[in-house]
Design a protein around this nucleic acid. Structure first.
Length: 424
RNA sequence: GUGAUUGUAGCUCAGUUGGUUAGAGCGCCUGACUGUGACUCAGGAGGCCGGGGGUUCGAGUCCCCUCAGUCACCCCA
């Protein structure tokens, strides 16, 4: 087994029938994004390391320890995409998309983070996300949040919770930072080592510490709400107002800080109890400063990223694995002559019918073929043996109804036509 | 990166204080039933016991290392 090559740690193969669920989810995502008027963007799997360092923030965990970074053959430092937002902004700038007014895009695809795998956390995972550029107003925040919520709602996931918060902007966040420093610094020695480190680099992140040594001080820390500037306050209350008007339930959660540096004002998360320690299925917010910090114009933006693995985990927790309806035809040939006759017929069925045609080329008994049909979830078995060859017919067995019908044996087109006529 | 725990057939798992040729259930294949699927019965195939090293007369069982899974911390999707 040691000599056997296995999938790298924290990655997984997606194989049938599991892959069909992913196709369903992705189809729903695309349909939803389409309805909201978002166009798809695809960017390279790897980018210049610098893009993420500048875009995500040097003090974030992603940049400090989670990036898959490697030198290419020209010794340029490259990094496997650990998140989509920075590449999306880079691409929009590169193609000058911001010159044409507001931009709405969505993405679906893998991200890579060098982490120790556990429930809901992998080295390669997949995200669906949207980015809405060009609107500074709360309407855009609402649009993006409601899009994320709509996906969760459409699956009937009832234990999902929408948490929202505002972390202020350039005007008031520095004040919040100062008041946090003033609160924690005198007691810095009592904080956990990790929090002490964060206190200097990014004091906001001390707030989401779960270390027992920090809890007491965190609990008495000043809240952002107390220092929010008038603009931020108005913006945030407009966002929550839209949510209320739309009947989208939410929780005001001052603990939500977000781990990426580029967020401003509105931040939100959708969480679920079905996900173990990684309770966030979707996280996002506003990042008005990012485009500029990546060398672009002053373009406000708001977006989110949603973990597809985690969404599927939530669906699993609902455990409503409905019986999949039978679909398709198992073409069955008994004997070499029947098999030779069947091959072109199968080819024609596959060309004209929308449902799958299954076929087993091995010489097996009818019983074995029917078992295979059962396993394939086929609705019908189309049987051709010596009797049928003589009578110039085929037997169409309805595996759900357990009934047989006879159809004339002809060319592939003839057979396909008969099947269509019979409502197959 | 830290800690805990697990790795035996395709899957779920047994394997006594180390002791000959490693087991079960499910699944798969074949047959009972020249040609009608979810039941039954009987056979069969399929394992360098994750990998490497060590202790021992002898290791699936003990020790070390390594890889991987799981769970948690950290952090996030």
């Amino acid at each position: 087994m040691a000599s056997k090559i296995t999938a790298p740690r924290g990655t997984q193969d997606l194989i049938p029938p599991q892959s069909a669920r992913w196709q369903d989810v992705e189809a729903r995502i695309r349909e939803l994004a389409h309805r909201f008027g978002y166009g798809e963007i695809r960017t390279p799997l790897f980018e210049s390391t610098d893009l993420f360092v500048r875009g995500v923030g040097e003090t974030t965990d992603i940049v400090e320890k989670e990036m898959y970074t490697f030198p290419d053959k020209s010794e340029r430092s490259m990094t496997l995409r650990p998140e989509w937002t920075a590449p999306v902004v880079r691409a929009a700038l590169e193609h000058n998309l911001f010159a044409q007014g507001p931009l709405r895009v969505y993405y679906v695809g893998p991200i890579f983070r060098y982490e120790r795998p556990q429930r809901g956390r992998y080295r390669q995972s997949h995200q669906f996300g949207v980015e809405c550029f060009g609107y500074a107003g709360p309407e855009a925040d609402f649009e993006v949040i409601s899009l994320a919520w709509e996906l969760v709602r459409s699956y009937g996931i009832d234990d999902a919770v929408l948490n929202v918060n505002s972390i202020g902007d350039d005007a008031c966040r520095p004040l919040f930072r100062e008041s946090l420093l003033a609160h924690f610094r005198p007691h810095a020695a009592q904080l956990s080592p990790e929090s002490q480190r964060r206190l200097e680099r990014n004091p906001l992140r001390v707030l989401d510490s779960k270390d027992e040594r920090d809890l007491a001080l965190v609990a008495t820390a000043p809240t952002i709400a107390s220092v929010l500037c008038e603009d931020c306050r108005a913006h945030f209350s407009a966002v929550t107002g839209f949510l209320e008007a739309a009947g989208i339930p939410f929780v005001l959660n001052p603990q939500i800080v977000r781990g990426l540096d580029y967020y401003t004002r509105t931040v939100f998360e959708i969480t679920s109890g079905a996900l173990g320690a990684q309770s966030t299925v979707c996280g996002g917010g506003r990042y008005d400063g990012l485009v500029r910090s990546l060398g672009g114009p002053d373009v406000p933006a708001v977006g989110f990223a949603l973990g597809i693995e985690r969404l599927l985990m939530m669906l699993d927790a609902l455990a409503r694995e409905g019986e999949r309806p039978r679909s398709g035809i198992q073409a069955v040939a008994l004997g070499a002559r029947a098999r030779a006759t069947l091959v072109p017929i199968v080819a024609e069925l596959r060309r004209t019918l929308a449902i799958p045609t299954f076929v087993d080329f091995d010489e097996r008994k009818l019983l074995a073929h029917l078992k295979t049909a059962d396993r394939n979830g086929a609705r019908y078995a189309l049987i051709l043996g010596d009797d049928e060859l003589t009578a110039k017919t085929m037997v169409l067995r309805d595996l759900a109804e357990r009934s047989d019908r006879s159809i004339p044996l002809g060319t592939g087109k003839d057979v396909a036509a008969s099947l269509v006529e019979m409502g197959v």
